[in-house]
């Protein structure tokens, strides 16, 4: 919290925000599973879950009850400690990453007159922090796969390593060009840079597309969902998991999807600035919702790639493109 404009941001505020993030995001992540099933169903002209509650809205509660009451099985030869810790890594890092992204514009609580910036912790290297945390989140699948003494699990964790080594470079390099333009690593600065209404995606379309591709690889979404692809490796790293541990992987994955959505909106799509007659908070909610929907849409439409194709794509196509993009951005900035 660098307090340039901000009045008091007490430890209490941060704690309240942390609890809010935990509660709201885990609820949204659970709700995301319902949305995903519904949207995928509609795209295949099915109905989707519709029996529990109106329009199947309570399916989330039913799933939660099922996950909580399911027997928690640890396989015989598994490494018990690591097996138990791995899901917590995925879920925890996903939430920690969300601690450093701003979602709404800062607002003032009426009556009390306290200014509240809508970010739990404005680290001044926010982007790198979030990316690092999401990268650390991949330790969850990696450890889970290696600890469960299962062939599918070990294949899943091998794929985790491959995927990580592939997309990481592209994510960093694709974000480097916008970082150069803005000259800061803080999300708030990114947002303020675009406050004149011109979105960064206009200047950096290539970087935006590269970031989306790498982000999908980062969250294991469909074109690159190699880690737990049912048709090839049963369930990959979650083969032996059941009950709430499995649920934590799930929540972590959906929280990561939301994080990628927020980063894409704040960095490239104009953040939480007001646009036309819409206030900023509606705009950013719409952008996040659309990028979440786009992930589901892509899942319904496109087949997934092989691990070696992902590596080929990332290292031989996307990385050179990203480097060229960075160089061109640098030249234009020097000239202009």
């Amino acid at each position: 919290m660098d307090g340039t404009m901000l009045p008091e941001v007490t430890a209490v505020g941060v704690i309240i925000k942390a609890i809010l993030i935990l509660a709201v995001i885990s609820a949204i992540a659970g709700f995301g599973t319902y949305i995903e099933r519904k949207v995928l169903a509609f795209m295949q002209r099915r109905v989707g879950p519709n029996h529990v509650g109106p329009y199947g809205l309570l399916q989330l509660a039913a799933d939660g009850i099922k996950l909580f009451t399911k027997e928690d099985i640890i396989p015989q030869h598994a490494n018990r400690l690591i097996f138990a810790v791995a899901p917590a890594i995925t879920a925890a890092t996903a939430f920690i990453a969300l601690g450093a992204v701003p979602v709404f514009p800062g607002f003032t609580i009426p009556f009390v007159d306290v200014y509240v910036p809508s970010i739990a912790s404005d680290v001044n290297v926010g982007i790198l922090f979030v990316l690092g945390m999401m990268a650390a989140g991949l330790y969850g699948p990696l450890l889970a796969g290696m600890a469960q003494s299962n062939k599918w699990g070990i294949l899943g964790s091998a794929r985790t390593a491959i995927q990580f080594l592939s997309y990481e470079v592209v994510t960093g390099l694709s974000l480097l060009a916008p970082i150069m333009m803005v000259g800061s690593l803080s999300f708030v600065d990114f947002n303020n840079y675009q406050s004149d209404g011109t979105w960064l995606v206009v200047y950096q379309p290539v970087a935006f597309i590269l970031f989306l591709i790498a982000g999908y690889a980062e969250t294991n979404r469909t074109p690159f969902d190699l880690l737990e692809h049912e048709a090839e490796i049963v369930s990959g790293y979650v083969t032996e998991y059941s009950g709430m541990r499995w649920g934590m992987f799930f929540i972590g994955e959906y929280a990561n999807m939301i994080t990628i959505g927020i980063i894409a909106s704040v960095v490239f799509l104009g953040g939480y600035n007001d646009w036309w007659i819409f206030p900023g908070w509606i705009m950013i909610l719409a952008k996040i919702a659309f990028s979440f929907f786009f992930m589901l849409w892509v899942r319904a439409a496109w087949p997934h790639v092989r691990p070696d194709q992902l590596m080929w794509l990332c290292w031989k196509v996307l990385m050179p493109l990203a480097v060229i993009n960075v160089v061109i951005t640098g030249i234009v900035m020097m000239a202009g």
């Binding site: 949207v39 509609f42 795209m43 849409w297 892509v298 319904a300």
Partner: peptide
């Protein structure tokens, strides 16, 4: 591909 799925939806 994207359009086909959206159309079906």
């Amino acid at each position: 591909g994207l359009w086909v799925t959206l159309r079906e939806m």
